[in-house]
Write a protein that binds this DNA or RNA. Structure first.
Lengths: 221, 221
DNA sequence: TAGATTGTTAATCGATTAACAATC
DNA sequence: TAGATTGTTAATCGATTAACAATC
């Protein structure tokens, strides 16, 4: 079974397809053509068909796609039909925000524990999840078959913790620290660099102003 | 002023260049060649030169790039040399996490206010920022020249609030709600869809398992 | 069957990498 | 100057869009 390597661009779009299909299910829509979906999502129908056909034929000529079936197939592709055990390292606001977001559990991401170095936080329980000392990290990962660690700690601490996670056998790091982690090839790192996102927004705001919309504004260049 | 349209891919990389240049400054490095930088960042030197030359020649043949100068030029390109007034709508954990992240202020993003509908939160003060009722939204935006709104509220409330923000003259929405906002062309929306990020991570974990522990080619970019 | 719409191949477009002349 | 390294053009690679035959 030689699986053709799927491009990052395609993977990047799958969750969005999944979200729209979920909404269609809620609306009671049973089937949809690539054309109708393209109109909703503001992408080309060609791209939708091309993307989906990376994984096999989910549609039917003359009919379109069965919404529930496609939804379920995409969930399998993304692996969110399975349970993933997650820990959160860093129990500050961001870590707590993630812990409190119940939708993750609906997608199979079960938060098994939280960790911090702050003694004031250790022992607290957030939505049934206990905050532990990072000293217990390795033991906990092994005892609870943790696959994914969300890293919501300052960037100065991140590399050291990442090393410990890797050595403890973690499979993936969801990295919110503002630094690029160095890990072996078989460990997945998915970055969420909020400050970079905000800078991109800033660029777009400024370039919007530059090209103006007819209104007079001080042109700084 | 016909500025050549810069591709999204290029803009996406600028904040990362900026981060690495900041680290170089901290290390006391004065100049760097595209080759040295490429080795650090794990991108090609060609790409670095090509990217930077979208905005003009910042380097010097035979010398390389002056780190401080390039850092400052990129900050101008990104518009983070200017002050941006920001509000946060939704004062839950995520909103508070953003409010507490002081590094944003260092980049010129000044958080002027927070808003919520929960009466228990209204009146609280986070790091000097008062939580107000969303009833005061429009007035506050106008009185304080707010350009950017971070939207950290549930997706059900997001479209209505987005409309109000647009009507109040906001320039950009930093959208954490799990939905695609519909806004006029001159309003910027930058999405941070955490659940989609987590699904991409899930895919990569699963595909890693599928192909066994063979040779990967990805790294933690 | 006839109409609709997919799956898939071919054409186009854009982004990345390579190469090298310009020049500090 | 000679060596180094950029700025920039050309070549390659990959991703998106268009087209249409297959087929439900």
């Amino acid at each position: 079974m030689e699986r053709k390597e799927i491009s990052k661009a395609v993977i990047g779009r799958l969750p969005r397809y999944y979200r729209y299909l979920g909404e269609l299910i809620e609306e009671g829509v049973e089937r949809i053509s690539s054309n109708e979906l393209s109109a909703r999502m503001k992408v080309t129908a060609s791209q939708i068909r091309q993307d989906l056909n990376n994984f096999g034929g989910f549609g039917q000529q003359g009919y379109g796609y069965n919404v529930k079936y496609l939804y379920s197939e995409i969930s399998k592709i993304l692996g969110i039909d399975q349970q993933h055990n997650v820990i959160i390292i860093g129990a500050g606001n961001l870590g707590q925000a993630i812990a409190n977001y119940t939708n993750f559990e609906r997608r199979g991401f079960v938060i098994k524990g939280m960790f911090d170095i702050n003694p004031k936080l250790i022992g607290l329980v957030i939505r049934g999840i206990e905050i532990r000392s990072v000293d217990d990290l390795e033991t906990f990962i092994k005892d609870n078959e943790i696959q994914i660690a969300a890293l919501t700690i300052p960037k100065t601490k991140a590399p050291e913790i990442a090393d410990r996670l890797v050595n403890a056998g973690i499979k993936a790091i969801w990295n919110f620290a503002h630094t690029d982690l160095v890990v072996p090839d078989d460990v997945v790192v998915e970055n969420v660099h909020l400050s970079e996102s905000l800078m991109r927004l800033s660029y777009r705001v400024c370039s919007m102003q530059d090209q103006g919309d007819g209104k007079g504004e001080k042109s700084s260049k």
